[in-house]
């Protein structure tokens, strides 16, 4: 395989891990909620994009629509269910598990086991006799952009400030006048919107079915576990490292070892640095400040 071939594989894996994990990471990192319906949120996004494109809306607008609508859907779910479970992390496991069952089967009942897919746009690029999908290169760019957006939202907006405060200490934030429930709601909505975006982005490259989200589930959990609670630093670093491990193992031994490698790295990381990469980085930063 050529050097560019490997770089391409790496970009592809990196984008997949980042985009799969980001919605989960935001919700887990900021709210401590393990959202087992994450895969179904992605699936919903994929359906919206596919159906909208089939109805004649341009693909990229459909994808934006996915993010928007799944965000709104997330907000509704939060108001109806999740908001009742703030601070009861593990109860939310049961609730989101229930939600995921309802969504997957509901989609099957409404649209049947599969819908017609949209082809991957933008064609391919030929370098040195090898074909590379332009759309997949774009996905890498979008993954980086998504991280940029998260940086901006959490570091440069009032919501970001309040949500970081809430994450550090909900009680103190509340006593300082932050409406923490509102912050949680918006966070959940943001996480859902990112999941919807991911679904929309991958809809043209994969089979769209009620089990669409399952493809992302394992990778997203591993990325979040390795990354730790900070959705920006954690996801970025773990996407980077895991993407490399996965691409290298894929290339040398094949798909199965790529998958196994991800899981084993995750176990080692939790054992050595339970708070994940973001915990490690934050510790270093704190030490720097103290000195």
């Amino acid at each position: 395989m050529s050097i560019f071939g490997f770089i391409y594989q790496y970009m592809d894996n990196f984008a997949f891990l980042i985009l799969a994990a980001i919605g989960l990471a935001v919700i887990f990192g900021m709210m401590g909620i393990i959202n087992l319906a994450h895969g179904e949120f992605i699936m919903l996004g994929a359906y919206i994009t596919t159906l909208a494109t089939m109805a004649g809306i341009p693909l990229f607008i459909s994808i934006a629509l996915s993010a928007l609508l799944v965000g709104i859907y997330g907000f509704i779910i939060d108001r109806l269910i999740i908001s009742k479970l703030y601070g009861r992390t593990l109860d939310s496991v049961v609730a989101t598990w229930g939600i995921s069952m309802i969504m997957a089967q509901g989609m099957l009942i409404i649209f049947g086991p599969s819908i017609q897919g949209v082809g991957t746009p933008l064609g391919s690029l030929s370098i040195g006799g090898e074909n590379y999908s332009v759309y997949r290169i774009l996905l890498f760019v979008i993954a980086i952009a998504v991280l940029g957006v998260i940086y901006w939202v959490f570091m440069h907006t009032k919501f970001g400030l309040q949500s970081r405060a809430t994450m550090q200490s909900q009680e103190i934030a509340r006593s300082l006048g932050v409406n923490t429930n509102k912050v949680y709601s918006l966070t959940f909505m943001l996480g859902a919107a990112f999941a919807g975006l991911t679904g929309g982005l991958y809809a043209p490259t994969m089979a769209v079915s009620p089990s669409f989200g399952n493809s992302f589930l394992m990778q997203s959990f591993v990325t979040v576990i390795v990354g730790g609670s900070n959705p920006l630093i954690g996801t970025f670093l773990s996407g980077g490292v895991l993407g490399f491990v996965n691409s290298a193992l894929n290339m040398i031994w094949g798909t199965f070892y790529g998958r196994l490698g991800l899981l084993i790295v995750a176990i080692i990381v939790i054992r050595l640095i339970p708070l994940g990469f973001s915990g490690l980085v934050e510790k270093k930063l704190m030490r720097g400040r103290d000195a």
């Binding site: 395989m1 592809d12 894996n13 994969m206 399952n214 493809s215 798909t255 998958r259």
Partner: peptide
Amino acid sequence: PLGESQFGSTIS
């Protein structure tokens, strides 16, 4: 593996 949806390395 069953459930795999990404085929980049296989294709190359």
